[in-house]
Write a protein that binds this DNA or RNA. Structure first.
Lengths: 253, 253
DNA sequence: TGTACATCAGTGAACGCGCGTTCACTGATGTAC
DNA sequence: TGTACATCAGTGAACGCGCGTTCACTGATGTAC
C-alpha cells in the first residue's frame, strides 16, 4: 500500500512519488518525538525545507497522512510476521518465529507500534482501508495453525479432540462464544480469507490462538510502555518463556 | 491519594479541597473527548467558569494535573481489584472476580484505562508517586496466589511441584528468567511488599501469574481499542472463557 | 524541432484558533491582638 | 467584640508560541500540434 499506483514515467511523476515517500518518512520520524497526537504537517514541512501549504499537494489533510502511516505500519509488521512464518518446518517453530519477528519489529519501531496497537488517537476515525493490513498478522498466525492441523502436528486437547475438552480446565466452547467462533471459522474457511486451508482449524483451537495473540500483544505493550519496570525488566527471557508456554497452550507441542 | 491531607477546618480550606477535586473531575471528563494529549488547563478552567490562570492556585502545571489523574486512576482500578478479591472463598473464584472487576472498571472508564495502560503521553515522565498505586493490581493478584498456596488449592505443575515442570510443555524456569523470578520472589517475601505470605508463592507460579496478567490486559486493550471488531465483537463471552483458561494455567484449578 | 498551451509543484500571506504560563492587581477570608 | 494586618483565591491582560487549512500567485515541467 506504499502508494505506488503506476510506474512513474516523467520526471515530475518520479519527483512526486519520492516526495510523497519522504513526507511519510519524516512524519514517521516525528512520531517518535511527539506521538500521533503531536504529528504536525507544519513541522514535517519545515524539516523538509518546504512551506506547510506545499504538503497539501501530497496529502489532502493531516488525517490522511496519519492514515498512510497507520497502513504502512500494519503492512510492515504484517510483512515481518509473514516472512518469519513462511519458512518451512514444524508449526511450533514457525509460530515462535512469528512472535519473535513481531517483537523485533516493535522494539525497533516503538512509536509505530504505539500508533497501531496503543490507545486510539482521539478524534481520528480509522478508514476501512486499514482493515486489510491490520488483518495480516492474525491471518499469518491462522495460517500456521492450519498448517499444523493439516500435517497432524497438533498436540493436546485443542485440535485433536474437536469436541468437549478432555483435559482438566480446558473448557469446551459454549453458548455465545461457540457461535462467534463458528462464524469466524466459517469466514476463514472461504477462499477469500486469504488463508488456504484455514477451514480445517477447529473453533476451539482458533479461540486459543486468539488468547495467545492477546497475550503476545499485552506482553509487548507492557514491555514497551514500561509496566515491567522493576520486575522482568530486560523482558527477553520472560518473552521467550511466555511464547513457548502459549504455543503449547494453543496445541503446538 | 485523593489529596485529603488534613481535615479542612476553615471555609477557605473546604472550598479549596472541593475545587481541587472539581478540577480533577472536569479534567477526567475532558480526557474522554480529547485524550491525555489534548488535556487543556484552559478548557478545564473555562468549563468550570473560572479564568485559566486561576487553575494554577490548585495545580502548579498541566503535568501535575495529569499526574493526579494518573494516580487517581491507578488507585481506582487497584481499589476495585482489591475489593473484588477480598471476598473469602476459593482462590480461583477470587482470581476470576478480580479479572471481572478490572474489566468492568475499564469498560466504565475507557479513557482512564487508556491513560494508564495505553501508549505513554509523549513528553510526560511519570513521577515516582505513581509506582505505588500502579502496583496495587499486580499485588492483589499475588495475594490470591499466596492464599491459594497457603490453603493447598494449587492444581497442576506450578505450585505443587516447585521443581522442573512435569507436564508436557510446561517449561521450568532457567537462566536469566529464573534469576529474575527469584529476585522478584525475594522482594515479595519481605513484609514491606504489603502482601502477607507472598513468600510462599513459588517463582514459576509467579511467572505464570505475570503471563496471565499480560493476557488480561492485552485482551482488555484489544476490546477497548477496537482490535476485536469483526471477530469476537461483544467480547464478554470470550473474556469469560479466557480468564477461566488462564486461571487454570496459573494453577488455580 | 519549435511553438502555444495546459498542468501542476511550490510560495507566501493570511484566517482564526487554542495552548501553557506569568504577573500585577483586587477583594474576600482568616488571624492576632 | 472590634480593629489592623496577613493570607490567599480569583481576575484580566499579556507573552510567545504552534496549529490546520485556504487562496491567489509564480514559474517550471509536460503535451499536442
Amino acid at each position: 500500500m506504499m502508494t505506488t499506483q503506476n510506474a512513474p514515467r516523467t520526471a515530475r511523476e518520479r519527483a512526486r512519488a519520492e516526495l510523497t515517500r519522504e513526507i511519510a518518512e519524516e512524519a514517521r520520524r516525528q512520531l517518535a518525538a511527539s506521538g500521533a497526537n503531536g504529528l504536525s504537517l507544519r513541522a514535517v514541512a519545515k524539516e523538509l525545507g518546504m512551506v506547510s501549504s506545499a504538503v497539501y499537494r501530497y496529502y489532502p489533510s493531516r488525517d490522511d497522512l496519519l492514515t498512510a502511516l497507520i497502513i504502512d505500519a500494519y503492512d510492515a509488521v504484517g510483512a515481518a510476521a509473514e516472512q518469519a512464518m513462511a519458512d518451512p518446518g514444524p508449526a511450533r517453530g514457525r509460530w515462535l518465529a512469528g512472535c519473535r519477528a513481531i517483537r523485533a519489529w516493535a522494539i525497533d519501531r516503538p512509536h509505530e507500534y504505539a500508533l497501531i496497537y496503543g490507545s486510539p488517537v482521539p478524534g481520528y476515525r480509522a478508514p476501512e482501508a486499514t482493515i486489510g493490513p491490520a488483518a495480516r498478522v492474525p491471518l499469518a498466525f491462522v495460517g500456521v495453525l492450519a498448517g499444523a492441523v493439516a500435517d497432524g502436528q497438533v498436540v493436546g486437547g485443542a485440535g485433536a479432540s474437536t469436541g468437549a475438552g478432555a483435559e482438566p480446565g480446558r473448557g469446551a466452547l459454549t453458548g455465545e462464544l461457540a457461535a462467534q467462533a463458528a462464524t469466524l471459522s466459517g469466514i476463514l474457511a472461504q477462499p477469500e480469507s486469504g488463508v488456504p486451508g484455514a477451514g480445517v482449524v477447529p473453533p476451539d483451537m482458533l479461540v486459543r490462538g486468539v488468547i495467545a495473540w492477546t497475550q503476545l500483544f499485552g506482553m509487548l505493550s507492557w514491555e514497551l510502555f514500561g509496566q515491567f519496570v522493576g520486575s522482568f525488566d530486560p523482558a527477553g527471557a520472560f518473552f521467550e518463556h511466555a511464547i513457548g508456554e502459549l504455543a503449547t497452550f494453543v496445541g503446538l507441542g
